[in-house]
Design a binder for these strands. Sequence first.
DNA 1: TTATTCTTAACCAATTCGGTCTAACACTCT
DNA 2: AGAGTGTTAGACCGAATTGGTTAAGAATAA
Lengths: 215, 215
Amino acid sequence: MLTEKVNYVTGEKMEKFLALPSGKRDAILNAALYHFARYGYHKASMSDIAGSAKVSKSLLFHYFGSKKMLYLYLYEYCNKVVNEVIAAYAVAGERDFFARIRLYQWIKISIMRRYVDLFDFLSSANFERDGEVVDALDSLIEENRGKGLSTLLIDLDYAQFAEDIDCQMVLNITLWCAEGQLAKLKKSGQLHLEAGIEEFECYLHLLRKYFYQKS
Amino acid sequence: MLTEKVNYVTGEKMEKFLALPSGKRDAILNAALYHFARYGYHKASMSDIAGSAKVSKSLLFHYFGSKKMLYLYLYEYCNKVVNEVIAAYAVAGERDFFARIRLYQWIKISIMRRYVDLFDFLSSANFERDGEVVDALDSLIEENRGKGLSTLLIDLDYAQFAEDIDCQMVLNITLWCAEGQLAKLKKSGQLHLEAGIEEFECYLHLLRKYFYQKS
DNA sequence: TTATTCTTAACCAATTCGGTCTAACACTCT
DNA sequence: AGAGTGTTAGACCGAATTGGTTAAGAATAA
């Protein structure tokens, strides 16, 4: 079967998993996201995940069958979550640089309120090379190429910046700030959406004030 | 013994380790730094470290006695390295904001050229809670309080910034940029000191141009 | 009550863990 | 050449942990 395609999110067992009370479900998802993101596929253990989620290890195997399946399921699930949020909130027409970056951060914070480690997991998954998952994972990555958060960073409008300014550098600076502020929020446990985005707006306001051309 | 104090850097076995050809020595140090930083004390394994360093596991135990000793030795060694570089290059009088941040980044890059994961290791060590090392580690951390890179960030001179600007925000932005640029260098494998610091200077130049008061 | 579904503790073989031991190596000094 | 000395690796140890199974207990619905 050259083009066998498995959808882990809508498998049989998965429906039962999705039918769990959302508290327990998210506890399991978050535990798995944390351990896979922090330790990578190989060193993350099912026992540890079960322990963090406060369920028995057997329950994980009941719902996911194997460690590999859990991992791949997580990857698909995360992409689904991100893409749905983007579809719901990303206004296609909006091209203003700071408005788009604000939206970028808004989406990240709002998702992280529920799944703190989702983005850490997704970026670590892109470098996962463990032999047990690498093949299936690579095709999932390929499927999701060009989707996801990165779509928010294309076709940005730099027209309002001062003429002599290097746009790539401004983009880097802004994204580094977004990353830094998000890490700060995460570390402090403060992922309240409004407060977090309000703080970020202060930084965007400052950058806009000095980088946009004065006229 | 309430106040027993062990200096892991100058122990007996350590002298022999320090007498190794520097290539082999650094290979061992870098492998250990990488694995402890990436996986934490518990999940980092001596076999993996030995494998990465391309020496046998027994050699590690020959020089360090135990995993715990290797970890604590590393922590002391890293602090020693950082403090020596700071002592050599940090000019006490210099207080200009951007000059100090430049120095901060310069020192980081120059150390990371030799020990890529040194700072990742040091910051991960500050959160290490594994029961086997936490007690000894905490007293080592206490010993090094107020030393290290953080000393470069005190008494900064914000006088030249525009009056209405929030200095804490400017500091955050600048440090986030430093962090981001360093991560970029690391990811690309480009840790050439001059090129790296030159790129960073571009960012500092841009920030200075727009944030320093125009007069 | 019974039937069904959810959940877990106990268990499995296999691997990996930190650590040891022994012997092969390379070296200088005689 | 041979004796001695320090350096290194491979085979090995018991103990712990791994991914995964099983069978039986708790909960729920009929």
